[in-house]
Every structure is written in C-alpha cells, then in structure tokens.
C-alpha cells in the first residue's frame, strides 16, 4: 500500500497508479466524533486542489472535505451512504470517500507525509 499524504485541512490522499484515494485523517475523524452522514460528490465532477468536494457530518457539525489534489472524481464510496461509521472505524481504509484521477501528480509534493503530518498536529494543538 502506498504511503498517505496529508493536507493541512486533514484530508489524506493515497496514490494507486494514476488514481488518488481520498478521505479524512484518523485524527480528523476522532475530532469530529460519530460521523452520521457523508455528502458524496458526483462522479465526473472536476475538482481543484483545495476546493470543496464532499461534506462529512457529525451530529453537531458539518465539515467540508477539500480535494487534496485537482482532477476528476472517478469513484465514490457508496458504502458510506448506509454506513457512515466506516469513517470512524477505518478512516484511511474502508472509510475512503472518493477516488480522483489526478490532473497533475506533482501537486502531491506540496502535501505532508505521515511524519510531517504528525508534527503538524502537534503545532495545531
């Protein structure tokens, strides 16, 4: 499994060939609490890095999920519609939100690796 890269908005992206798998970080799911609903993007939508792509809702908050990289949405995790709890249980695995066909893989260079993200979390707290 390829390595996760993180944005400052707490999204992760994992590269699988030309496709990026996107979700929210384990830290983000823990902060949000029980996820009760996920508003998935439409397949075929073009998103830009940093633009709104999905919404993750807990009971008392709605948080935008920003695209960590630009490209076209090629798949969404339909399982979240009936089981939004997958994000709490396995944020970086079964709790993925959408897959994106990257427009420019170099955009990922601006993101943090695991170690850098953990450091970033310390500064945020």
């Amino acid at each position: 499994m390829s390595q996760l890269r993180y944005s400052k908005d707490h999204e992760y992206i994992r590269l699988e060939g030309e496709i990026g798998v996107v979700g929210i970080s384990d830290h983000a799911q823990a902060q949000l609490g029980d996820v009760v609903f996920v508003e998935l993007p439409k397949i075929g939508t073009q998103v830009v890095q940093g633009g709104e792509a999905a919404v993750v809702e807990s009971v008392k908050a709605a948080s935008e999920v920003y695209a960590p990289a630009s490209g076209e949405i090629v798949a969404v995790n339909d399982a979240l519609e009936s089981q939004p709890s997958l994000i709490n249980e396995d944020a970086t695995g079964k709790g993925w939100i959408f897959r994106i066909k990257l427009a420019d893989a170099r955009e990922l260079d601006a993101l943090m690796d695991e170690a850098a993200y953990q450091e970033f979390l310390k500064t945020e707290a």
Partner: peptide, 12 residues
C-alpha cells in the same frame, strides 16, 4: 439532522 440548519451550517 440539525446540520441542515442555520445554527450549524450558517450561510450553507
């Protein structure tokens, strides 16, 4: 389902 409402979602 309060996330639809103004006290949480504000302008959205």
């Amino acid at each position: 389902l309060s996330t639809r409402e103004q006290h949480i979602r504000r302008e959205k």
